[in-house]
Design a protein around this nucleic acid. Structure first.
Lengths: 326, 326
DNA sequence: TTGAAAGCGCTAACAG
DNA sequence: CTGTTAGCGCTTTCAA
């Protein structure tokens, strides 16, 4: 097996305590001893066993991130920024793809307890999971109201819904459909739909919703979109639940020879980097992914240091207008 | 702090060994004792400390994945599939974004040694990193020739380059540009460029390359593409290094009023899910991302179990023809 | 300024 | 079938 502190101690002719002291740069040591020990560590190519240290300190310096799937670019980018942020603060990221499955999520939560992760960031979308209570004061949530007492970091979804709807109205749309997620889930994203309704009413326009739950497979989502366009299609504007659905709508519209933006204007939500690169023609509401990541990490670490933190952090979104709402 | 095996033992009126036995389902135990202990664990809501077990067994059941960035959909999707595969086999994923930076990568490698991860999957693109030798027999690489003895799992890049070039030739292109990565890096992806050259020569066509290293920022890549189109643009076909660059070319072409596919045909590489969704009009070579993930995990775990494994695993790619090469 | 010894939570001989 | 004991690699009193 690999070398231990004892090997170093023996070779250097000192006690393990002394080696530990130079390792941690703690307590009094003569420079001579220190140098000697350091040299020996070099020679032996000794690497301290973090596992043993974690075991003693009861700190793993692992933070778990639970997301539905890193395959989705919103979560892929979020994951990236969270990892970067954590690494900078000396923490490491343990990834959990819940696939929006309750059992999966529960399994991960019990695993996280066993592994004794220092903290958890949840960006997943399940509800009624009692197990979160075991992570009190070491958990934050992104865009998800979990339980009282769990700090939430979210985008300004109401503003997003408002900006999206207003953009379509400003460009002359009258019959605007809002594609929303599962309305029985109390996620902050619901506020987008509420904003949409408010704005429509304020403008004396009729509102209507189509529900496409986030947790459906892409095929199922596509089917719902196809059905929308195969029926009698009466809309001239769509506020989509996210960019992927927006794009599905645009593709479906094209197939049905409904010109965008002339006959139909579409606006998405998320504005991930990859979407902006691959579909620059699509108008969207850009979420502050990097800031969501930064704030989540900041608040989680503050929590771990037993500081007081804001229960709710709301970050602004931005309208990115483009061809699809011209 | 949290409960230990000792608390359970005391409450149940047995020794810690007995508790350990029911925990691990090992050795002989009377049903009565077992049930009693189990009940006590339930009552106390005891969660075994995996850290302590890891410490003893010297196995963390953590596998590290080093990628340039999960922000890139190829790696985002790869990460997703690897995590899923690992979770199924009882391993957990520790994510490292190297950002293609050598120092970063080195820092991670030393961290991984300290953390005593059981194994490593490298999908990053750096070279000359000596530290990989410390992970002998517990490391595999995806699309990267690291050092002798490190198993590699790769796409059939030569086939990919061939399919892409042939597609353009079949559709009538004569002056085809190949945008390749850094040619000084000996990555398997270089074989795409070699295949391109071979096919061009076989068809008595002139070949030419533009180099856009993968590790450049998106802005720098965009600048290189813009420069290509701002100059005297003489091509009627582009074999792009990846889908994002392909899309940049298509966008730039549009700006310069070069019609696609009439005047210029473009084909990408990677064919991630998100690209197929957001840019269905783009022809591309689809990499078997899920299989790359599965094979990597399979081979790594075989390696950890001291089985013999293939040094090189090559998986087929597929042409996905679409509008951009019609 | 240094060392000896105890202990973190768990498992694995070895006894009984 | 069950318990006693030692020890994984490291840090931390406490003493010298």
């Amino acid at each position: 097996m690999s070398l231990t502190i004892k090997d170093v101690a023996e070779k250097a002719g000192v006690s393990v305590t002394t080696v530990s002291r130079v390792l941690n740069n703690r307590g009094y040591i003569s420079n001579e001893t220190r140098n000697n020990v350091m040299k020996t560590m070099e020679e032996l190519n000794y690497t301290p066993n973090e596992m043993a240290r974690s075991f003693l300190s009861a700190k793993t310096r692992f933070i778990a991130l639970i997301v539905p799937t890193t395959e989705n670019p919103f979560f892929g980018e979020l994951t990236f920024h969270i990892e970067k942020e954590l690494a900078q603060k000396g923490y490491n990221l343990f990834i959990c793809n819940s696939l929006n499955d309750v059992d999966n999520e529960k399994k991960y939560l019990s695993l996280l307890q066993e592994k004794r992760v220092d903290g958890v960031i949840v960006g997943s979308h399940n509800i009624n999971i009692d197990e979160y209570k075991y992570f009190e004061n070491k958990i934050v949530s992104i865009e998800r109201e979990l339980t009282e007492g769990i700090p939430i970091i979210q985008s300004d979804n109401y503003l997003g819904g408002k900006l999206a709807t207003q953009e379509l109205i400003d460009k002359g749309c009258k019959r605007i459909l809002c594609i929303r997620g599962d309305q029985h889930m109390t996620t902050p994203a619901n506020k987008r739909a509420i904003a949409y309704k408010d704005i429509m009413e304020k403008n004396s326009l009729n509102y209507s919703f189509l529900e496409i739950p986030f947790q459906l497979s892409d095929e199922e989502k596509q089917a719902k979109v196809d059905k929308l366009f195969n029926g009698q299609f009466v809309y001239d504007g769509i506020v989509a639940g996210d960019d992927i659905i927006a794009k599905m709508c645009m593709n479906s519209a094209m197939k049905h020879e409904i010109a965008i933006p002339e006959k139909l204007k579409v606006i998405g939500f998320d504005g991930t980097k990859i979407v902006r690169q691959l579909s620059p023609e699509m108008s969207t509401i850009v979420q502050p992914i990097e800031n969501l990541a930064k704030k989540s990490v900041e608040i989680l670490l503050a929590l771990l240091n037993e500081k007081n933190v804001d229960q709710v952090t709301t970050l602004p979104v931005k309208l990115l207008p483009s061809v699809s709402t011209q």
